[in-house]
Design a protein around this nucleic acid. Structure first.
Length: 238
DNA sequence: AACTTATCCAACCGCCGCTAC
DNA sequence: AGTAGCGGCGGTTGGATAAGT
């Protein structure tokens, strides 16, 4: 491993601590839990391994497509990408990308470049980076969080990070990252008009992951999700 | 069976932005 | 205004394991 592996006992202590005191205040967790780990290790272990509802195992085809498309949009914003994949962590997504997708896509791009030299299509796709916007402070205040965060608020905060529930239908946009993402999408003219102007230029990859069938209806990315989220954001920020 | 190479993924590190003082 | 402390993020590392020779 990249460091010292966590023992079952350590996991148990951390779980117990989080259950008792809630998430957040990570600097206190090592002390409260009696762990000889730094705050970051505790947080990472919880987020990537111990947190409830973490999905393990192979990525579904739909998840892979989502990752590819979001990566086209957002670049290496793994936490944002993971936020759209229920049960997946940023670390999982990042590892999966580095191990599987980056190689596939590189090979694919190399092929495409050879095939259609001079094509501007892929070069015109601009990766969205969050632009500075003071959303966080106001949203935090509106949520009544901060110094007086209660355990309940922390639980709520945890729930808020889930934008798609198990059946992929319910959405909540509360996190700073989501807001920034949508503000960026807004700036790029990608949401709000009911039209999504950008063709992701992934037909080749989709054909590959769909077994050569092109983009199947079941694997279509549901942009209504994003539009709905944007509406929620507008309501929230107004 | 023994060894080498490739792959996977949990954990760590350093940096950044935000907040409180 | 400056600064320390914190949470969070992305990049990287390296041990475990699988696959290949």
């Amino acid at each position: 491993m990249g460091g010292v592996a966590w023992t079952e006992e350590e996991d148990h202590l951390l779980k117990k601590c989080i259950q008792q005191y809630g998430e957040g205040k990570w600097h206190r967790v090592p002390l409260l839990a009696g762990l000889n780990r730094c705050r970051k290790s505790c947080r990472l272990r919880w987020l990537n391994y111990l947190r409830p509802n973490i999905k393990r195992g192979n990525f579904a085809e739909e998840e892979v497509e989502m990752i590819v498309k979001l990566h086209k949009l957002l670049g290496n914003r793994w936490s944002l990408i993971a936020g759209r994949l229920p049960g997946r962590t940023a670390n999982d997504v990042k590892n999966y990308w580095n191990c599987h997708l980056s190689k596939k896509l590189n090979a694919l791009e190399a092929d495409q470049e050879a095939d259609q030299e001079g094509s501007q299509i892929s070069k015109d796709v601009e990766i969205i980076r969050p632009q500075p916007r003071n959303i966080a402070s106001s949203s935090a205040k509106k949520r009544g969080l901060g110094e007086s965060q209660t355990d309940q608020a922390l639980v709520q905060q945890e729930n808020d990070t889930t934008t798609i529930d198990a059946d992929g239908k319910n959405h909540l946009v509360e996190t700073q990252q989501d807001m920034m993402m949508y503000s960026c999408l807004d700036q790029q003219g990608m949401v709000g008009g009911g039209e999504f102007p950008m063709d992701f230029q992934l037909e080749g990859f989709e054909a590959m992951v769909n077994g050569g069938e092109g983009c199947s209806s079941s694997s279509q990315w549901n942009w209504d999700d994003l539009l709905l989220d944007m509406d929620l954001y507008n309501d929230f920020s107004s």
